Simulated scan of single mutants.
Amino acid sequence: MIPPEVPLDDEEFVTRAQAGDREAYELLVTRHTASAYRTAVLLGAGSDAEDVIQEAFVKAYRKLSRYRGDSSFRSWLLAIVANETRNLHRSRDRRHGLVLRAARVDPTAEIAEDGAVGAVLAGERRTALVRALRLLPAKDREVLVCRYFLDLTEDETVTMLGWPRGTVKSRTSRALAKLRALLAVEEVSHRG
Protein backbone atom coordinates (compact mmCIF):
# COMPACT_ATOMS: atom_id res chain seq x y z
CA MET A 1 0.00 0.00 0.00
CA ILE A 2 1.25 3.49 -0.88
CA PRO A 3 1.38 6.03 1.93
CA PRO A 4 -1.12 8.82 1.12
CA GLU A 5 1.46 11.55 1.72
CA VAL A 6 3.56 10.31 -1.25
CA PRO A 7 1.60 11.13 -4.40
CA LEU A 8 2.74 9.16 -7.42
CA ASP A 9 2.90 10.71 -10.85
CA ASP A 10 1.16 9.16 -13.84
CA GLU A 11 4.30 7.42 -15.09
CA GLU A 12 4.66 5.47 -11.86
CA PHE A 13 1.01 4.41 -12.01
CA VAL A 14 1.43 3.43 -15.69
CA THR A 15 4.49 1.32 -14.90
CA ARG A 16 2.59 -0.47 -12.12
CA ALA A 17 -0.48 -0.94 -14.34
CA GLN A 18 1.67 -2.34 -17.14
CA ALA A 19 2.99 -4.85 -14.61
CA GLY A 20 -0.59 -5.96 -13.91
CA ASP A 21 -1.53 -3.72 -10.97
CA ARG A 22 -5.22 -3.06 -11.60
CA GLU A 23 -5.48 -0.71 -8.65
CA ALA A 24 -2.84 1.52 -10.24
CA TYR A 25 -4.89 1.64 -13.45
CA GLU A 26 -8.04 2.41 -11.46
CA LEU A 27 -6.20 5.35 -9.90
CA LEU A 28 -5.24 6.58 -13.39
CA VAL A 29 -8.89 6.28 -14.44
CA THR A 30 -9.99 8.25 -11.38
CA ARG A 31 -7.34 10.90 -11.97
CA HIS A 32 -8.26 11.43 -15.65
CA THR A 33 -12.02 10.79 -15.82
CA ALA A 34 -12.96 14.48 -15.61
CA SER A 35 -10.62 15.58 -18.42
CA ALA A 36 -11.60 12.56 -20.55
CA TYR A 37 -15.29 13.37 -20.07
CA ARG A 38 -14.73 17.03 -20.85
CA THR A 39 -12.80 16.09 -23.99
CA ALA A 40 -15.54 13.77 -25.21
CA VAL A 41 -18.24 16.39 -24.61
CA LEU A 42 -16.26 19.20 -26.21
CA LEU A 43 -15.54 17.07 -29.27
CA GLY A 44 -19.25 16.37 -29.72
CA ALA A 45 -20.09 13.14 -27.86
CA GLY A 46 -22.92 14.91 -26.05
CA SER A 47 -25.08 12.52 -24.04
CA ASP A 48 -22.88 9.60 -25.20
CA ALA A 49 -19.78 11.04 -23.49
CA GLU A 50 -19.83 8.52 -20.64
CA ASP A 51 -20.02 5.61 -23.09
CA VAL A 52 -17.19 7.12 -25.12
CA ILE A 53 -14.88 7.52 -22.14
CA GLN A 54 -15.70 4.07 -20.80
CA GLU A 55 -14.74 2.58 -24.17
CA ALA A 56 -11.63 4.76 -24.29
CA PHE A 57 -10.48 3.60 -20.85
CA VAL A 58 -11.03 -0.04 -21.85
CA LYS A 59 -9.04 0.47 -25.06
CA ALA A 60 -6.31 2.34 -23.19
CA TYR A 61 -6.01 -0.55 -20.76
CA ARG A 62 -5.72 -3.04 -23.62
CA LYS A 63 -3.10 -0.86 -25.34
CA LEU A 64 -1.21 0.01 -22.17
CA SER A 65 1.67 -2.28 -23.10
CA ARG A 66 2.19 -0.13 -26.23
CA TYR A 67 2.41 3.12 -24.26
CA ARG A 68 6.07 4.14 -24.31
CA GLY A 69 5.98 7.47 -22.51
CA ASP A 70 6.84 9.55 -25.61
CA SER A 71 4.05 11.89 -24.54
CA SER A 72 2.24 12.35 -21.25
CA PHE A 73 -0.22 9.63 -20.30
CA ARG A 74 -2.94 12.30 -20.26
CA SER A 75 -2.38 13.34 -23.88
CA TRP A 76 -2.07 9.68 -24.97
CA LEU A 77 -5.37 8.89 -23.24
CA LEU A 78 -7.11 11.99 -24.62
CA ALA A 79 -6.02 10.95 -28.13
CA ILE A 80 -7.87 7.68 -27.56
CA VAL A 81 -10.90 9.61 -26.28
CA ALA A 82 -10.77 11.81 -29.40
CA ASN A 83 -10.61 8.74 -31.65
CA GLU A 84 -13.54 7.15 -29.86
CA THR A 85 -15.50 10.38 -30.25
CA ARG A 86 -14.68 10.42 -33.98
CA ASN A 87 -15.87 6.82 -34.18
CA LEU A 88 -19.11 7.90 -32.55
CA HIS A 89 -19.53 10.65 -35.14
CA ARG A 90 -18.90 8.23 -37.97
CA SER A 91 -21.39 5.75 -36.58
CA ARG A 92 -23.99 8.51 -36.32
CA ASP A 93 -22.96 9.86 -39.72
CA ARG A 94 -22.65 13.29 -38.16
CA ARG A 95 -19.86 15.72 -38.93
CA HIS A 96 -21.23 18.97 -37.53
CA GLY A 97 -22.37 20.39 -34.23
CA LEU A 98 -19.92 20.22 -31.34
CA VAL A 99 -21.68 20.20 -28.02
CA LEU A 100 -19.91 22.59 -25.71
CA ARG A 101 -21.87 22.10 -22.48
CA ALA A 102 -18.74 21.23 -20.56
CA ALA A 103 -17.11 24.52 -21.50
CA ARG A 104 -19.72 26.54 -19.65
CA VAL A 105 -18.61 28.56 -16.69
CA ASP A 106 -20.20 27.79 -13.36
CA PRO A 107 -23.20 30.14 -13.20
CA THR A 108 -22.80 30.67 -9.46
CA ALA A 109 -19.28 32.03 -10.06
CA GLU A 110 -20.66 34.50 -12.60
CA ILE A 111 -23.29 35.76 -10.19
CA ALA A 112 -20.77 36.14 -7.41
CA GLU A 113 -18.40 37.95 -9.78
CA ASP A 114 -20.63 40.62 -11.31
CA GLY A 115 -24.08 40.16 -9.84
CA ALA A 116 -27.14 39.52 -11.97
CA VAL A 117 -26.13 41.89 -14.80
CA GLY A 118 -22.70 40.32 -15.08
CA ALA A 119 -24.25 36.86 -15.19
CA VAL A 120 -26.54 37.84 -18.05
CA LEU A 121 -23.69 39.41 -20.02
CA ALA A 122 -21.40 36.43 -19.41
CA GLY A 123 -24.17 34.07 -20.51
CA GLU A 124 -24.70 36.08 -23.70
CA ARG A 125 -20.96 36.03 -24.46
CA ARG A 126 -20.82 32.28 -23.85
CA THR A 127 -23.85 31.71 -26.09
CA ALA A 128 -22.26 33.82 -28.83
CA LEU A 129 -19.01 31.87 -28.49
CA VAL A 130 -20.80 28.52 -28.74
CA ARG A 131 -22.74 29.70 -31.81
CA ALA A 132 -19.55 30.93 -33.48
CA LEU A 133 -17.65 27.72 -32.68
CA ARG A 134 -20.41 25.63 -34.23
CA LEU A 135 -20.00 27.56 -37.48
CA LEU A 136 -16.31 26.65 -37.77
CA PRO A 137 -15.15 23.62 -39.77
CA ALA A 138 -14.64 20.51 -37.60
CA LYS A 139 -10.83 20.61 -37.64
CA ASP A 140 -10.83 24.27 -36.58
CA ARG A 141 -13.19 23.44 -33.70
CA GLU A 142 -11.02 20.48 -32.65
CA VAL A 143 -7.82 22.51 -32.42
CA LEU A 144 -9.51 25.35 -30.51
CA VAL A 145 -11.17 22.91 -28.11
CA CYS A 146 -7.80 21.27 -27.42
CA ARG A 147 -5.83 24.48 -26.96
CA TYR A 148 -8.34 26.73 -25.21
CA PHE A 149 -11.13 24.67 -23.66
CA LEU A 150 -9.00 21.73 -22.50
CA ASP A 151 -5.87 23.86 -21.96
CA LEU A 152 -3.67 21.31 -23.68
CA THR A 153 -0.13 22.33 -24.53
CA GLU A 154 0.95 22.45 -28.14
CA ASP A 155 2.74 19.10 -27.68
CA GLU A 156 -0.37 17.52 -26.15
CA THR A 157 -2.50 18.89 -29.00
CA VAL A 158 -0.08 17.40 -31.55
CA THR A 159 -0.38 14.03 -29.80
CA MET A 160 -4.14 14.19 -29.33
CA LEU A 161 -4.99 15.21 -32.88
CA GLY A 162 -2.14 13.33 -34.55
CA TRP A 163 -1.20 16.37 -36.63
CA PRO A 164 2.26 17.79 -37.32
CA ARG A 165 3.29 20.68 -35.04
CA GLY A 166 3.23 23.16 -37.94
CA THR A 167 -0.35 22.17 -38.76
CA VAL A 168 -1.42 22.67 -35.15
CA LYS A 169 0.22 26.13 -35.09
CA SER A 170 -1.17 27.30 -38.41
CA ARG A 171 -4.65 25.83 -37.89
CA THR A 172 -4.85 27.38 -34.40
CA SER A 173 -3.93 30.78 -35.79
CA ARG A 174 -6.39 30.55 -38.70
CA ALA A 175 -9.16 29.14 -36.51
CA LEU A 176 -8.75 31.96 -33.99
CA ALA A 177 -8.93 34.52 -36.80
CA LYS A 178 -12.12 32.89 -38.14
CA LEU A 179 -13.61 32.76 -34.65
CA ARG A 180 -12.81 36.44 -34.02
CA ALA A 181 -14.44 37.38 -37.33
CA LEU A 182 -17.55 35.35 -36.51
CA LEU A 183 -17.76 36.93 -33.06
CA ALA A 184 -17.37 40.41 -34.56
CA VAL A 185 -20.26 39.72 -36.94
CA GLU A 186 -22.29 38.38 -34.02
CA GLU A 187 -21.53 41.53 -31.99
CA VAL A 188 -22.56 43.86 -34.84
CA SER A 189 -25.77 41.93 -35.56
CA HIS A 190 -26.59 41.82 -31.83
CA ARG A 191 -26.25 45.61 -31.52
CA GLY A 192 -28.17 46.33 -34.70
Score class of each variant (00 low, 15 high):
Gln54Leu: 04
Ala175Val: 09
Glu142Gly: 00
Arg147Ala: 10
Arg74Tyr: 02
Leu129Ser: 08
Leu176Arg: 15
Ala175Lys: 08
Gly69Ser: 08
Ala138Asn: 00
Pro3Thr: 08
Leu28Thr: 12
Glu84Trp: 01
Arg94Asn: 07
Ala49Glu: 11
Gly162Tyr: 01
Ile80Tyr: 05
Glu110Gly: 01
Gly166Asp: 04
Arg104His: 06
Tyr67Ser: 05
Ala45Arg: 13
Arg94Ala: 14
Leu183Met: 11
Leu98Ile: 06
Glu23Thr: 12
Glu26His: 09
Leu182Thr: 01
Glu156Gly: 12
Ala34Arg: 15
Leu135Trp: 02
Ala45Met: 13
Leu88Tyr: 09
Asp48Ser: 11
Ala34Thr: 15
Arg95Cys: 00
Tyr61Asn: 11
Lys59Asn: 10
Leu182Glu: 13
Tyr25Ser: 07
Ala24Gly: 04
Arg134Pro: 02
Thr172Gln: 09
Leu64Ser: 07
His96Ile: 06
Ser71Gly: 07
Arg74Ser: 12
Ala102Lys: 07
Ser72Gln: 04
Val52Tyr: 07
Ser65Ile: 14
Thr30Tyr: 12
Leu144Pro: 01
Glu124Lys: 12
Tyr25Asp: 03
Thr159Ser: 04
Leu176Glu: 11
Phe149Leu: 12
Ala24Asp: 04
Arg131Gln: 05
Leu27Ala: 15
Thr157Tyr: 03
Leu129Glu: 06
Ala116Ser: 09
Val145Glu: 01
Ala82Gly: 05
Val14Arg: 07
Tyr37Asp: 07
Pro107Tyr: 01
Thr85Asp: 03
Ala102Arg: 13
Ser91Arg: 15
Ala36Trp: 13
Asn83Asp: 13
Leu28Gly: 11
